[in-house]
Design a protein around this nucleic acid. Structure first.
Length: 489
RNA sequence: GGCCCCGUCGUCCAGCGGCCUAGGACGCCUGCCUUUCAAGCCGGUAACGCGGGUUCGAAUCCCGUCGGGGCCA
């Protein structure tokens, strides 16, 4: 499968016309894995021929998202390499030169067919059930073309597809592909304004950068004959192609903005770990073979095969990503977890944490780590430790209106007040004793305390929370809750 | 409309002619644990789109059909 005569060089070539999305991230990941697996070179190129829609913000996001995912590239934008540039926008002269060379070689021609002519042709072909691919029927002879161009007329350059003919190739993912040339139109390579089309720019780059394997989305599968034809017309050896199945939304259509969050950065911001997203993306269309699903990047790079990639389009399932993220969160070391979470908590609080607050955070975090799915859900769970309490109304209504709530709160206040030592064990001992004296079940007696102390019926473990909160503030909250209960009577 | 691709539990993946009364994971549903929520553990639910072939034998091969998707327009 691997052609040893040619060094392995792959590329990921996003257009900075949007944020790097998860589908692109997966394509990048597979390219990266393939390169790492076979000791190849991974190149990051910027397909920014569309100057109107390309922005610096998107360009920066692509780089940032790639780095965040941990996908480093050996050559390309930012890092450089043997090529003077990896931006298509800076290579227009080269594309124009290739187009004119093709023209000189008779492999391309100036096309004077009007949009109306083309349109009519397509409609008629379609009505007759024939391929709607433009077959060059309005092409004028070279002399006339030269005359008209010399006279100042502007026209796009089209590639002259050989007809009849057929292009075949073995796709690493899809298998043997065969396209009859009647289905391939004489496609434009250089527009009349001198700008290259995607087909030209992308192919010229792949040739110039000596790309050995083109690994990309299935949406480009039907354009592949054009790229092969162009490559060979340039006198170069074609690359090996691998077309990855598309990612879909829950409704089955190609994953897009309307399915909600699709950008890599939105997942980062939503509290997902790069290692989780990366693992999920890898597993989405590829399997390491055994029943393992949690796989490290190194392990993936050891086992990845393009020929093992699934042909089926895959639905991007956020629920499973969340589960996987939880797994990775729990795998984090305690310090690592504090490191990732601290800034989020500080942002939520609107202030920096220092001294005792840091210790408090470190105390409670292990208990929060066990139950988190995304990092962003954490600040609200620890908020009660760092500021004034706010009661969640639903929780209050559900818990504090029940019999025994007042008894429990008062009893806890008394029990904790007398405590000589303040620790999780001491707190637990005192409260359990309190439950017994008042003949309260754990559920009935402890839930009111949870609401009184944390403000919510959902919180980190109670004894740990109280221990972390400290005696003074716990007693304060208990008496505040007592007062609030009394006033409701 | 033309061409191309795909079709195993709700979702993702395994399966590459017999090991399949189809396996794993997420989800969902029980139960256990339990101070809440999670996590963890136990068990369960659920699929080879359909129809023809080929073969001693098909989820696996072939044909058709239906369905979904992509590209071009």
């Amino acid at each position: 499968m691997i052609d040893a005569s040619r060094p392995i060089r792959v590329r990921f070539a996003p257009s900075p016309t949007g944020y790097l999305h998860v589908g692109g991230g997966r394509t990048a990941l597979y390219n990266w894995l393939f390169a790492r697996r076979y000791g190849g070179t991974f190149i990051l190129r910027s397909d920014d021929t569309d100057r109107e829609r390309s922005t610096d913000e998107f360009a920066a996001d692509i780089i940032e998202s790639m780095r965040w995912l941990g996908l480093d590239w050996d050559e390309g934008i930012e890092v450089g390499g043997p090529q003077p540039t990896y931006h298509q926008s800076e290579r227009f002269a080269r594309y124009q030169a290739v187009a004119h060379q093709l023209l000189a070689d008779g492999r391309a021609y100036y096309s004077f067919a009007s949009p109306e002519q083309l349109d009519t042709f397509r409609k008629e072909a379609q009505a007759a059930g024939l391929p709607p691919a433009y077959d060059g029927r309005f092409r004028v002879d070279a002399d006339e073309a030269a005359r008209r161009i010399a006279a100042g007329e502007r026209a796009p350059i089209r590639f002259a597809v050989e007809r009849p003919g057929v292009t075949e190739f073995a796709d690493l993912v899809r298998g043997d592909m065969r396209f009859e040339h009647v289905q391939v139109d004489d496609f434009v390579i250089l527009r009349s304004d001198g700008s290259p089309t995607y087909h030209l720019a992308s192919t010229v780059d792949d040739v110039d950068f000596d790309i050995s394997h083109v690994v990309r989305g299935e949406d480009l599968l039907s354009s592949t004959p054009k790229h092969i034809l162009l490559t060979e017309a340039m006198g170069s050896a074609r690359a090996t192609y691998a077309h990855l199945p598309l990612l879909r939304g829950p409704d089955g259509a190609k994953l897009s903005k309307r399915h909600g969050h699709t950008s890599i950065n939105s997942y980062r911001d939503a509290g997902f770990l790069a290692e989780a997203l990366r693992n999920y993306l890898a597993i989405l269309s590829w399997s390491p073979g055994d029943d393992e699903e949690i796989v490290s990047l190194a392990d993936m790079a050891d086992r990845f095969e393009l020929t093992d990639v699934s042909k089926n389009p895959a639905v991007f399932d956020v629920t499973k990503l969340e589960w996987m993220n939880g797994v990775y969160i729990r795998e984090l070391s305690g310090d690592g977890f504090v490191g990732r979470v601290r800034a989020l908590v500080e942002a939520d609080l609107g202030r920096e944490l220092a001294g005792d607050d840091v210790r408090t955070l470190e105390e409670i975090l292990p208990h929060v780590q066990e139950r988190a799915k995304v990092l962003t859900e954490i600040p609200e769970q620890v908020r009660f430790l760092f500021g004034d309490i706010t009661y969640d109304e639903t929780s209050w209504d559900k818990v504090m209106r029940k019999d025994g709530a007042d008894v429990a709160v008062a009893g806890a206040s008394e029990a904790l007040d007398q405590l000589s030592e303040w620790s999780i064990e001491a707190v637990e001992g005192a409260l359990r004793a309190m439950l017994e004296t008042h003949e309260l079940s754990a559920r009935k007696g402890l839930q009111p305390l949870r609401v009184a102390v944390t403000g919510s019926s959902i919180s980190p473990p109670l004894f740990e929370s109280i221990a972390a909160l400290g005696r003074d503030r716990t007693l304060e909250r208990l008496s505040a809750a007592s007062a609030k209960l009394a006033e409701a009577m």
